[in-house]
Design a protein around this nucleic acid. Structure first.
Lengths: 169, 169
DNA sequence: TTGCTCCTCACGTCACGTGAGGTGGC
DNA sequence: TTGCTCCTCACGTCACGTGAGGTGGC
């Protein structure tokens, strides 16, 4: 049996977090001794570990309560929906980053770790592709994966207008 | 001159937000009439627009106060540092997404909107590249932009071990 | 009087962190 | 008595949203 602090240390979280989960109805101690001390056993430890695993997905507490109570078949659905929410948040943060870059007029920030358009062209040339080969390649890419083509061009940091031109080609 | 609600509507934000900025010391009304009504002029409108521009970067209020008071030369520094914080948050969210994918054992989630390895190979083939051309292309990519090559292969959803093989080739 | 806008508190959010003030066992 | 752990409130965080209860001008 462990006390709150012992349990918290085992899971590398704070005592406050364990108490918070208790208030939220996620995790109750196995028993309370006469002096009011909380005592946890292996079952509670296992439950806390499950909770923390879900938290590592970024799931809100209310969702976790849901998942722990009725292990519904809707678990995958809930997780997928959460996955999409994460995608949205990421898109929002990327938007903020782009706004900063535009403001500072420093596209280097974004390109820093990226392969840029010029670099890509150099690589393709070094691999033996001619100007015509590359045009043909874009054509195929556009035909077979239009959305993927768009994202690929964006990833090279190419301006929207130029992307349009390349795709219409 | 506008009232709070009018000013808020002009900037497509809520009255509550304007009042919050006032409490935080970001934006004071030009004057208050006898009945206590707030009145804002063009100067306040312009200031609010600047505030909202900074907010679009995801900057916390305290940073914005800083930026509006002393237009320090450290403005770019602050923005770059914020840019990095955004990068960190994004990395965290990506980690959460990956954890969900592992849990569900459904790599399709990540690949869903992505061009996958197989698809990429098809495109390259359709563009007329032979097996040998592609190997040569990887070689050049690896030589010229090793980091970019790694990220590109990751973006195709290829497993770490296979990435190693391709890069060592 | 009815409607509309304005005002000022004050509480809620989300997942905890951080004391303050007090108790119990060695 | 001193140290250490435990306990229970209760307030703070961040950027607002949402009433509640009241006033002023048409």
């Amino acid at each position: 049996m462990f006390t709150v602090t012992q349990l918290a240390k085992r899971c590398a979280i704070s005592r406050a977090t364990v108490l918070y989960y208790e208030r939220e109805g996620l995790l109750q101690p196995a028993l309370r001794s006469d002096n009011g001390y909380r005592w946890y056993g292996e079952a509670e430890l296992a439950r806390l570990e499950r909770i923390l695993a879900f938290r590592a997905f970024g799931l809100p507490i209310t969702d976790i309560i849901h998942l722990l109570n009725r292990e519904g078949a809707d678990q995958p659905r809930l997780l997928k929906s959460h996955f999409d929410k994460l995608e949205q948040k990421i898109a929002e943060l990327r938007k903020q980053q782009k706004a900063i870059v535009r403001f500072l007029q420093q596209p280097e920030l974004l390109e820093e770790k990226m392969v840029t358009k010029d670099r890509w062209v150099e690589i393709m040339r070094a691999a033996g592709l001619s100007e015509e080969d590359m045009q043909n390649w874009h054509k195929r890419f556009e035909q077979m994966e239009p959305q993927g083509h768009q994202e690929f061009l964006e990833s090279l940091g190419i301006e929207p207008e130029e992307i349009k031109k390349i795709r219409q080609h």
